[in-house]
């Protein structure tokens, strides 16, 4: 019986440019795209570069573009892809390519450094901090992020418009997790508007579509932050209300 194979078209190159090369790989049950890349490395070309680590969808290393869609290579099963045409595997196009499927995502770390860290309020009389489960639930979702940067990659503000001043969905999620934290007292709203440029997001929800951890990035992080910015900067009634009841503000 003849072995079932798939054609894989892989980007080979670096920041100066590159080309696509086709490889045949044998299929086996439960195979993922990263297995196919490993097969090419092992049998056809051991110079093919790919970044990977856990092969379980938790380290966030093997992000790429499979048939044009930003996905983790280790979580994309071959049997979910059409095999009548070659499967295209490319690096994330928003970031500079180092080699083949590996790109330089360090721009993200620079953005991350600009975020004011968690600043807890004064502890209780017994020296501890406590809060309820319902307070934790909302920010818990944001802690699932594995920093694969697929959301940053697909965000058209970064991908097409190259707005390097924009924090991008990953860091708006981090900002939301800090801003909504029941024990945090740091105020980042002015920064979210002026330094991280939340207004550049036009909520087209691609970040949510590609998130491998299924974080509802737009609805649960970005839009609530946008609404908080509206309350602070665009809503005269909310401003008046905040001034009137500033001493009794229970939102913190």
């Amino acid at each position: 019986m003849s072995e079932k194979t798939a054609k894989i078209k892989v980007f080979r190159g670096d920041e100066k440019g590159g080309e696509y090369k086709e490889y045949d790989v044998p299929l086996f049950e439960g195979m993922v795209v990263l297995d196919a890349i490993h097969h090419i490395q092992a049998t056809a070309d051991n110079t093919l570069a790919v970044r990977w680590n856990c092969k379980a969808g938790k380290c966030g290393s093997c992000g790429g573009e499979i048939n044009g869609k930003p996905r983790l290579m280790c979580m994309t099963r071959m049997d979910t892809l059409p095999l009548d045409k070659p499967i295209t595997v490319e690096p994330m196009k928003t970031f500079p390519v180092i080699k083949d499927l590996v790109c330089d995502v360090s721009w993200n770390f620079e953005i991350n450094k600009k975020i004011p860290p968690f600043k807890p309020k004064a502890p209780l009389a017994d020296g501890t901090w406590r809060f309820s489960q319902e307070d934790a639930d909302r920010v818990q979702e944001f802690r699932k992020c594995i920093e694969c940067f697929l959301c940053q990659n697909v965000c058209h503000v970064l991908r097409n418009h190259k707005k390097e001043e924009f924090a991008g969905p990953r860091f708006l999620v981090r900002l939301a997790s800090l801003e909504m934290h029941p024990l945090d007292v740091e105020d980042r709203l002015s920064l979210i508007k002026e330094a991280f440029h939340i207004g550049l997001c036009n909520i087209t929800k691609c970040c949510t579509e590609v998130c491998p951890e299924h974080i509802t990035i737009t609805d649960n992080a970005i839009i609530p932050l946008k609404e908080r910015v509206v309350s602070r900067f665009y809503d005269p009634i909310a401003k008046f209300w905040q001034k009137l009841f500033a001493k009794n503000d229970v939102t913190k």
Partner: peptide, 22 residues
């Protein structure tokens, strides 16, 4: 300072994609 990739690396323009779905 790390940067984003320039738009010249890959083909760009309205409707350009490697996506094979509708």
């Amino acid at each position: 300072m790390a940067r984003l990739a320039p738009n010249t690396m890959f083909k760009s323009g309205l409707g350009t994609t490697q996506r094979k779905d509708n």
